[in-house]
Amino acid sequence: MAEPFLIGDRMTGGYGGADILHGCTVAVEKGEIAVIVGPNGAGKSTAMKAVFGMLNIHAGAVRLNGEDITRLSPQARVAKGMAFVPQTHNIFTSMTVEENLEMGAFLRRDDISGTIDEVYRLFPILKEKRRQAAGELSGGQRQQVAVGRALMTRPSVLMLDEPTAGVSPIVMDELFDRIIEVARTGISILMVEQNARQALEIADKGYVLVQGSNAYTDTGRALLDDPEVRRTFLGG
């Protein structure tokens, strides 16, 4: 079987103290959505950060499109086509929406107006508010700015750390719809989610992590139907 487009393969590591990840594997195929779920403290965000190079792993590897990128800095990974939306502090609050998008494209030297238009097509509300300071927007709109900023480098992989944290259920559904739309354009999506049930519904692949290891791995649908997973993680 061909290797997935992006894979964090049997990663072991942590923030310097005790290991948090123990041989954990997460991967995503081209244009698909992979979701990492699991109980609090399972190392979901840590796994994501490990894939993006924000912490050291001392065993295992990260490969993008077959290329080993384990030793690259996060900035170098951005240049390779990866984009990351942190869970918090993911926008420039004092800058306008449009400036946020411009900063997202800082590495690009070509004309970015086409990409800005694409982001506005995806998130029409941002076009309306483009001259407003991003910090003045609502929670859901801020998340849209954050995702839009990450899309400005025209990445091949978009990584989202709990994109729906702290937003209302209606806004959450809308954000998920937009994420599906992004995936349809051929961008792979790897995300960590608290709202496990809704996230698995849109996931092509789901990873249930427990204490830094893979507990269950299957398609999103199969995980939702698995009685064991339902009982232990999805609350019946």
């Binding site: 900035q75 240049a79 502090h89 926008i91 420039f92 609050t93 800058m95 400036e99 800082f106 900023r149």
Partner: peptide, 22 residues
């Protein structure tokens, strides 16, 4: 200016500025 904006971005959110390649 692009440079001026990158200064403001860096001042606003250093980590995100790094992620944006500043």
């Amino acid at each position: 200016t692009r440079t001026g904006k990158s200064m403001r971005a860096f001042s606003d959110n250093e980590d995100l500025a790094l992620l944006s390649g500043i």
